[in-house]
């Protein structure tokens, strides 16, 4: 059953150079209990998509069309007041850099408790719950740590706090935007392990945003590949790894950023991410695509079902 269903979502940024279609008719589903990964280079619109699910796109971004169905309710039609009760309670979100994302002037405990108090939990109970949740995210010495300020903790520890904070109200969906990018490789593995564990424990679906196919392989059940604001391939993680169909997906997998250690930008794919103010005609990937033929620059490819549970938008998808 689908917990979240994004349908033809389009997001435009009005800039001085004209309107930029950062996200263009993107559709995907996240099922109950699954980990879905959105993967792509930086600037492909994956983070914008994630923020739009919370209706938190920064100015001057605007959702121009589409639907975001969460448990059947279109989040684009609810009032801002109702969004307050969805954010944190139904959908939680963690960000790339755990230092930036915690308020430097409050203790981490205060910041966790603050969320719990929205549900009118008594203060004492909220603090106890904060300590419990710190145990859950494996922060040792939790009774002391709740009184630490963010800058007194290590990067991995801070990300644990973020995860705990966002899970503390038992949301049905957790969005993790590049949750391990700013962390050391060893810590990365621990955090991913923790996310998998917590999914079981809290029965939460997770939407992971990443540029790293290594992370996808490690935790995702299904994956959506985005390129230049478009979804190009969606499917079960095993099927995609076994049989990557879109040329971009193939190149991404070959690029393996974890080895080259290039943060975000994958220089092994020739060419650059296109300027979305003037996107290429036809398939957006065709200027960089080694398999491009005439039709690729003329018409946009539609999704084709490669096999069950595996869609690909490519004119030459049979490859």
């Amino acid at each position: 059953m689908n917990l979240l269903s994004v349908d033809d979502l389009a997001i435009t940024f009005e800039t001085q150079e004209g309107s930029v279609k950062a996200v263009d008719k993107v559709s995907f589903d996240v099922k109950k209990g699954e980990i879905f990964a959105l993967v792509g280079e930086s600037g492909c619109g994956k983070s914008t998509t994630a923020l739009s699910l919370m209706r938190l796109i920064p100015e001057p971004g605007k959702i121009t069309s589409g639907k975001i169905l969460f448990e059947g309710k279109d989040l684009l039609n609810v009032s801002e007041n109702e969004m307050y009760s969805i954010r944190g309670k139904q959908i939680g979100m963690i960000f790339q850099n755990p230092l930036d994302s915690l308020n430097p002037v409050y203790t981490v405990g205060q910041q966790v408790v603050e969320g719990l108090l929205i549900d009118n939990m008594p203060k004492q109970e909220a603090w106890q719950r904060a300590i419990d949740i710190f145990d859950d995210v494996k922060i040792s010495d939790s009774t002391q740590r709740v009184n630490s300020f963010p800058h007194e903790l290590s990067g991995g520890m801070r990300q644990r706090v973020m995860i705990g904070m966002m899970l503390s109200r038992n949301p049905k969906l957790l969005i993790a935007d590049e949750p391990t990018t700013a962390l050391d490789v060893t810590i990365q593995a621990q955090i991913l392990e923790l996310l998998k564990e917590l999914r079981e424990k809290y029965n939460t679906s997770i939407l992971v945003i990443t540029h790293d196919f290594g992370i996808v392989a490690e935790i995702a059940d299904r994956v959506g590949v985005m390129y230049a604001g478009k979804m190009v391939e969606v499917g079960d993680v095993y099927k995609i790894f076994e049989n990557p169909s879109h040329p971009y997906t193939k190149l991404l997998m070959k690029a393996l950023p974890r080895i080259t250690k290039n943060q975000g930008r994958l220089e092994t794919i020739p060419g650059n991410v296109p300027n979305l103010a003037k996107p290429p005609t036809g398939c957006r990937f065709h200027p960089r695509c080694p398999f491009a033929i005439d039709v690729c620059s003329k018409s946009q490819p539609e999704f084709i079902e490669i096999e069950e549970g595996h869609l690909c938008a490519c004119h030459r998808g049979e490859f």
Binding site: L51, M54, R87, N103, E114, G115, I118, M162
Partner: peptide, 10 residues
């Protein structure tokens, strides 16, 4: 962290 605060549901 302002984004975080909103994401928390404040």
């Amino acid at each position: 962290y302002v984004l975080t605060a909103y994401a928390k549901g404040l």
